[in-house]
C-alpha cells in the first residue's frame, strides 16, 4: 500500500483539524485497511479515531437512544436497551459480517463502509466510484448482487451495511462534529452523475454518534443470502409496524441490497397506512414499491424476492412474530 502517516486523535476537534488532503479516519479498519491493501483507498494520512470518547450508548431524557460512533458492532448488538427496544437494529448488526469483524468494527465505520462491487475493488477495471469518468463495468457485467432501484448509467452498486438499513427504518440521524445532526435519509445519496460520493458528507466531516428517536413499534430485520452466515445481503428488509384494531397505524420499511443507499420504501409505507393489516395489503404495497424497479442483466430475481420479503416480514410482525415493543 501507499506509505501513509498515522496519528491517534484524542479529541474530535483535534481529529477534525488533522484531516487535510487525502486523509482518512480510521475506526475498526475492517474495510478501509482491506481497500488500502488493494490500492482502492490510498490515503496519505490515517487519523485513528477509535480512542475518542464516543464509546457509549445512552438514553437521553427525551427517550432517544444515542450510540457513540466508536461503539463496536458487537457491543451495540448486545446492548440490553437496544435488544429490548430496537430489535431490528440488534438483529441487523448480528446479521452482518462475522463475530471477529463485529468485535472490531465501529458504528461510524459501519455507516461509511464502501460498496463490495467487484469492479470497485479491482483497480484494473473501470469504476466511476473509484475513478470518476472511467465508466461502470458492472452495468453490463456481473451484476447478480447489484441495484434494482435508483441506479444510473454512472453506477449500479449497492450499499453493503445491514446496520444502516435498520437505522434508516428507525429514522435515525448522525451527529457530526461542529455541524448540525443529519438524518440518515439525508446522509446517503443515490449515484446520480457522481458515484464517487456515497454520502453528502464534506471531506473531514466526523460522525460522533447516531441518534435513534424514541422507538414505538415492533420491528424486525430479515436478510436473504445464499449462505447462512457471513455474506452480504442479496436483499434485506428492516420493518417496523404499528397495528391497531386490525389496521396499520404506522409502518416504516427500509431495504438493503437494492440500491446505492438504504432504500426507504416510502411508497409502500404510504399505501399501507390506514389499510387493513392483512397479507393482501402487504403484498399490494410491496409490489407497488417494486413498480419502479429496473433490474439489470443478472438480478431480475431481486424484484420478486424483495416483494416477497417485505410481505413476509410485515405479515410476521402483524401476527406477533416480530420484536417488541
Amino acid at each position: 500500500m501507499r506509505p501513509f502517516a498515522y496519528e491517534r486523535a484524542t479529541t474530535a476537534g483535534a481529529a477534525r483539524a488533522a484531516h487535510t488532503g487525502d486523509a482518512a479516519y480510521l475506526g475498526g479498519g475492517t474495510n478501509l485497511v482491506d481497500l488500502m491493501r488493494l490500492g482502492v483507498a490510498v490515503p496519505d494520512r490515517l487519523i485513528d479515531v477509535s480512542g475518542l470518547a464516543h464509546d457509549r450508548i445512552e438514553r437521553r431524557d427525551d427517550g432517544a437512544i444515542v450510540i457513540g460512533a466508536g461503539v463496536r458492532n458487537s457491543d451495540l448488538a448486545a446492548d440490553r436497551t437496544v435488544r429490548a427496544e430496537l430489535p431490528v437494529l440488534s438483529q441487523a448488526v448480528l446479521a452482518g459480517a462475522s463475530g471477529q469483524i463485529r468485535n472490531q468494527a465501529t458504528t461510524g465505520g459501519n455507516l461509511l463502509q464502501r460498496t463490495r462491487c467487484p469492479y470497485f475493488q479491482d483497480v484494473t477495471k473501470p469504476c466511476n466510484k473509484r475513478e470518476p469518468g472511467s465508466g461502470c463495468a458492472a452495468r453490463d457485467g456481473e451484476n447478480h448482487n447489484h441495484a434494482i432501484l435508483g441506479h444510473t448509467l454512472t453506477c449500479v452498486a449497492t450499499h453493503p451495511s445491514d446496520m444502516a438499513v435498520a437505522l434508516t427504518a428507525l429514522d435515525a440521524s448522525v451527529h457530526l462534529h461542529g455541524r448540525d445532526p443529519l438524518p440518515l435519509a439525508e446522509l446517503y445519496r443515490l449515484p446520480h452523475d457522481d458515484a464517487s460520493r456515497d454520502t453528502t458528507l464534506a471531506p473531514g466531516d466526523l460522525i460522533t454518534a447516531v441518534e435513534v428517536p424514541p422507538p414505538g413499534m415492533p420491528s424486525a430485520y430479515r436478510k436473504v443470502r445464499e449462505r447462512a452466515s457471513y455474506a452480504f445481503a442479496l436483499v434485506s428488509a428492516a420493518v417496523a409496524l404499528d397495528v391497531a384494531d386490525g389496521a396499520v397505524r404506522g409502518c416504516r420499511i427500509a431495504l438493503g441490497g437494492v440500491a446505492h443507499r438504504p432504500w426507504r420504501a416510502y411508497r409502500a409505507e404510504r399505501l399501507l397506512t390506514g389499510m387493513p393489516a392483512t397479507e393482501e395489503s402487504f403484498r399490494r404495497a410491496a409490489l407497488a414499491e417494486m413498480e419502479n424497479a429496473e433490474p439489470l442483466r443478472d438480478n431480475g430475481y431481486k424484484v420478486p424476492l424483495t416483494a416477497n420479503l417485505v410481505c413476509r416480514t410485515l405479515s410476521d410482525l402483524a401476527s406477533g412474530e416480530g420484536g417488541r415493543p
Partner: peptide, 13 residues
Amino acid sequence: VNHDLAQYHVPAC
C-alpha cells in the same frame, strides 16, 4: 471477477 473469499463463497459453520 469474484476473486476473494468475501465474494467466492464456501460454506460457513
